[in-house]
Amino acid sequence: MIAIFRKIRQKLLAQNRGPQYLSYALGEILLVVIGILIALQLNIQKEENKEKKVTAQLLIGIQADLKLEAERIDFLQAYYGDITDGIQQILLTYQGIENNTNQELGQAFLNTFEFRKFSKFNTNYQTLYGSGFLQEIEDKELSEEIVTYYSKQFLEWSLEIYQQKASAFDFNGVPQFDPLDKLQRGENYQSIPNFRLDVGGHYTTDFKELIKESQVLNFLVDLLHQSELVFSNLKTYKETNLTLSNRIQKYLDQ
């Protein structure tokens, strides 16, 4: 092709046809420019397609993270649901409405100290946000929802407050409570996330007498309110989690 253009130029020059040569040269330059622009456009489209694929993969990764979070939330809902029910049973026994055994009261009381935490699985979100691919999401409402979801911390804060309240109980200030009850646990006890204290059926503490102490009673009532807040926040987080996952799937299906 270049050889053909060269021959045409040489022929025009040989025939001393300057204006025609100039027009031809300008046309040739224009064709070259158009070719460069087309090549650039193709390259841009290629990069955009590549970025869209990466963005889609990161969104799929976020969906997987949301699924893991949902499973953790399910566990925490059952966990703090047991705590809330246990505290309610202790208070109902104190009021004479229920008549739980000392074993049941002891286990419910010790469960209140076994708090659990929650943290988002945000590796894919951090990559999406840090790489700038978040801006490649055409649905801007979806990108805002993703940022909002990972920015909210109300569940984490409520769990942190629960931990602080549960850890603040002063065993030394309650002489009826024998610390050995909390220490006499199974040989297989390990500090792993989903393990709960189980001290067996023998307590030296009379928990029906223990809960008559104003300090213990106030502690349990305060902790009940916080556990109910945690349970409510877990429910809200689960709903938001599922909504966001469905929104991402809808966007990917487009």
Rank of each mutant, 00 (worst) to 15 (best):
V147M: 09
D178V: 08
T112G: 01
P193T: 08
R6V: 10
A64I: 09
Q164E: 15
V33S: 03
L224G: 04
L242T: 14
S151I: 09
I90E: 04
G200S: 06
I97A: 00
D85L: 13
L183Q: 13
A25F: 10
L13G: 11
F109W: 02
I90M: 05
Y94E: 14
I62D: 01
K46G: 15
E71V: 02
Q20G: 10
E144C: 01
Y203G: 01
A39C: 07
T101H: 02
R116A: 09
F219H: 14
R247V: 04
E213R: 07
I192Y: 07
S227K: 09
S167C: 00
L210V: 00
A14H: 15
A168G: 12
E160P: 05
L217C: 08
T148C: 04
F115G: 08
I34R: 01
T243F: 13
K208M: 04
N122M: 11
L13W: 11
D181F: 01
P175R: 02
R247A: 12
N246S: 15
L68K: 08
G106V: 12
N218A: 13
D139C: 05
L40C: 07
P179W: 06
L58Y: 10
F133V: 09
N172G: 14
E138C: 06
D139S: 09
E228M: 08
Q63D: 03
I36V: 10
L31N: 11
K53H: 07
W157P: 06
E141K: 05
E144P: 01
N102C: 01
N241G: 07
K120A: 13
L31F: 13
I2M: 07
G27V: 02
D74E: 09
L180C: 11
L223R: 03
I137R: 01
L42I: 15
L66I: 03
S214M: 11
L22H: 08
V221F: 05
T204A: 14
D206Q: 03
I73F: 00
P193M: 08
I192C: 07
N16M: 07
Q135C: 03
Q95C: 07
K120P: 06
Q63C: 03
L142N: 00
Q126L: 08
F154I: 12
Q126G: 04
N43W: 11
E114Q: 12
Y80R: 02
F118E: 04
Y125I: 04
T84R: 13
I2W: 12
N16Y: 08
L105R: 00
Q254I: 06
G96Y: 11
N99T: 03
K52F: 15
Q163R: 10
S151D: 12
G200F: 08
K117L: 14
I192T: 14
L40K: 08
K11R: 15
Q249N: 14
L68I: 08
L244C: 02
